[in-house]
């Protein structure tokens, strides 16, 4: 799962959101680091819907603009939990490796 897809899942885990809402939530969660374009967003949404992780949950029209809401279903929640566990394991592994690294080890190739 890409970082962008993970962030979209996180945004939908909070509450059902429409496309623009997802973009805003992802931007806020990533401190303005990840800015989803419409093409990327709908590529991710298509794949998530295909995988059965999310589904459209309703439509409203605001100022003549169609907003379709998406929500996470139990499969999506499970996938998010599994991915989070995987990332946590990875991070703790990284911490262990970095902690075990001797601090005064000379760099390779230096005299």
């Amino acid at each position: 799962m890409s970082e962008q897809a993970y962030l979209v899942l996180l945004a939908l885990a909070e509450e059902p959101r429409h496309g623009y809402g997802i973009v805003q939530a992802v931007t806020a969660m990533s401190d303005d680091r990840v800015r989803l374009g419409a093409g990327t967003l709908y590529g991710i949404l298509d794949r998530l819907v295909e995988a059965g992780y999310t589904e459209a949950s309703g439509e409203v029209v605001v100022d003549g603009r169609l907003r379709r809401y998406y929500r996470l279903n139990p499969d999506g929640m499970a996938a998010l939990a599994a991915e989070t566990a995987r990332l946590t394991d990875l991070a703790s592994l990284a911490r262990r490796v970095l902690a075990a690294r001797p601090s005064s080890r000379p760099a390779l190739g230096s005299a």
């Binding site: 623009y20 973009v23 419409a38 709908y42 603009r65």
Partner: peptide, 13 residues
């Protein structure tokens, strides 16, 4: 199926 919805997002963005 999606053009209206994506156009709305594009206008918002």
């Amino acid at each position: 199926e999606r053009a209206d919805e994506v156009t709305a997002v594009l206008l918002d963005l």
